[in-house]
Amino acid sequence: MAKFGRKGKGGMPAISTSSLPDIVFMLLFFFMVTTVMRETTLKVKNVVPYASEIKKLEKKSLVSYVYVGEPKKAFQHIHGTEAKIQLNDAFAKISDIADWIISERLERDEKEVPFMTTSLKVDSKTKMGIVTDIKQALRKASALKINYSTKKEVPVE
């Protein structure tokens, strides 16, 4: 009996897995090309608002990010629940922005400095007060190109 049963199943050969590495490599290269390395760990809550009239940011290497929002749960016992600024990996004050802009400029080529953009990634629940302060600080540091980071919203007609 067992003999017969075996013969019936033997009709289907095992699926060859020899091309599996190729498939996975293909996926790997896809992700390597389309994604960028995570540079900072977010310490603030950051849900950017929606807008429809948006432009894509070009030249990511010339963009510096300012994150603004309520500190995440893990940091609330030190930093409270008021909206905070995060530059690179650390919490910062308004007065730190000027120094930070200068250090960002030093990292880039001199020719590229006029094209540098500051992207404001501000949580949608934030009040404008802190944003206004940041804008004033950026003006003083003459980093005038800014971008309010928003997500694409499909217009409802």
């Binding site: 389309t34 960028v36 950017v48 807008a51 948006i54 432009k55 894509k56 005038l144 190109k145 928003t150």
Partner: peptide, 23 residues
Amino acid sequence: LIFFLVATTMDVDSGISRILPPI
């Protein structure tokens, strides 16, 4: 593959661009 999935982000940066007036 899993390393790259974890270590990278895919979000496209987009937003409203503005030029601030000089001081």
